[in-house]
Amino acid sequence: MKSTRISGLFERLRSEGRTGLIAYLTAGDPAPERTPSLVAALERGGADLIELGVPFSDPIADGPVIQRGVERALKAGTTLASVLEIAAEIRRRSEIPLVLFTYLNPVLKYGFEALARDAAAKGIDGCLLTDLSVEEAGRYVEMTRAQGLDTVFLAAPTSTPERLKLVAQYSSGFVYMVSRTGVTGEREKVSSSAQPLINSMRAITNLPLALGFGISRPEHAAELSGKVEAIVVGSAIVRIIEQNADSPSLETCLEAFARELRNAL
């Protein structure tokens, strides 16, 4: 299989002996024109991969922080098409891997084939569709891979061994491990269900594993360093955006937070 920015990243992480930092933000929050500079700040702080969240009216897998981010982005007029333009803008100045993180319906409306084509052209490297189960994903995977994009799927603590096999089979680039049952959001501690899930998945696949949901602090990063190939931090970043949206120091705050996480890994 041909090398992508995502597989390139995980090869580099392996040779450097380092755990990667994946940063999620909702594209268009607080406004579409702000996203490229927020991504640049996260990259300066040490983020290795960016998940660009596509805002959707009914984000059932998200907790209150990301729900509010999504509302701000929708209010600012963000659509799937404008997220692709944001990606193109980021790509003009950066080679950081970009994964589109979205609910299914906006993609259905756009069309699997059209999205794969346009996303590849704008510099997106992979897609994760939160509510597309592997059982329903055949055509999507085929069309998305045909454009050289990676297809990332979720594995959860509730997933049976049979389901974990399917998730591994349909995933490329990496597997997104959901550390606990529940919606997105910051937590005090890394869930105790994370390690058993990591162990089960290791027995099934050689794909890199990224762990997310609830991971929000440098001490979480330190705890997980070396246990997975990357960690995903989302709500903590969106909260910083929410609290500093009108402040000229938003980029500085994001950069500093990313650096703290990166230094703890």
């Binding site: 509510d131 597309l132 959860a156 603590p157 509730t158 997933s159 389901r163």
Partner: peptide, 10 residues
């Protein structure tokens, strides 16, 4: 069909 996050599939 069944279009939900993986947590709910099992």
């Amino acid at each position: 069909g069944r279009f939900v996050p993986e947590v709910l599939m099992a």
